[in-house]
C-alpha cells in the first residue's frame, strides 16, 4: 500500500509544476492549465487525507467534488475572457497583454 506521504508528495509536485508554469509560460491557455494543475494538487491532497488521514472521513471527497466543479466554471470564464482578448487584439500571449503596465 502506498503511504499517505506518497500522495502528499504527488500533490506537492503537481502544485509546484503549476506554480512554475504560471510564472514562466507566456501563452494564456497554458497559464490557465497551470492553475488547473494547482487545483488538482488540492484534490489529490483532499482525497488522500479522506482515505488515509488521521481522522479519515468522507468530507474530503465531497470537498474535492466541489473543487472540481468550481474549477471547471473558473476555467470556462478564463477561456471566455481569452476569446474576448483575442477578438480585440489577435493575441493570447500573456506578455503582450500589458497596456496597463507602469
Amino acid at each position: 500500500m502506498v503511504p499517505l506521504g506518497g500522495y502528499l508528495a504527488v500533490g506537492a509536485i503537481l502544485f509546484s509544476i503549476g506554480v512554475y508554469g504560471l510564472l514562466t509560460k507566456k501563452n494564456g491557455i497554458i497559464v490557465l492549465l497551470s492553475i488547473e494543475l494547482m487545483l488538482n494538487a488540492v484534490n489529490v491532497n483532499l482525497v488522500a487525507f479522506s482515505r488515509f488521514g488521521i481522522a479519515a472521513n468522507i468530507t474530503g471527497q465531497i470537498f474535492s467534488v466541489f473543487t472540481i466543479t468550481v474549477a471547471a466554471a473558473e476555467a470556462a470564464i478564463g477561456l471566455a475572457i481569452l476569446v474576448a482578448i483575442f477578438r480585440n487584439k489577435a493575441t493570447i500571449n500573456a506578455s503582450e497583454i500589458d497596456i496597463m503596465k507602469r
Binding site: 494547482m38 488540492v42 491532497n45 488522500a48 481522522a55 474530503g60
Partner: peptide
C-alpha cells in the same frame, strides 16, 4: 484551498 486541505488533513473536519 491547498492550505485548507492540510488543515482538513490534520483535523479531519471542514
Amino acid at each position: 484551498l491547498y492550505g485548507a486541505s492540510f488543515l482538513y488533513g490534520v483535523t479531519g473536519t471542514t
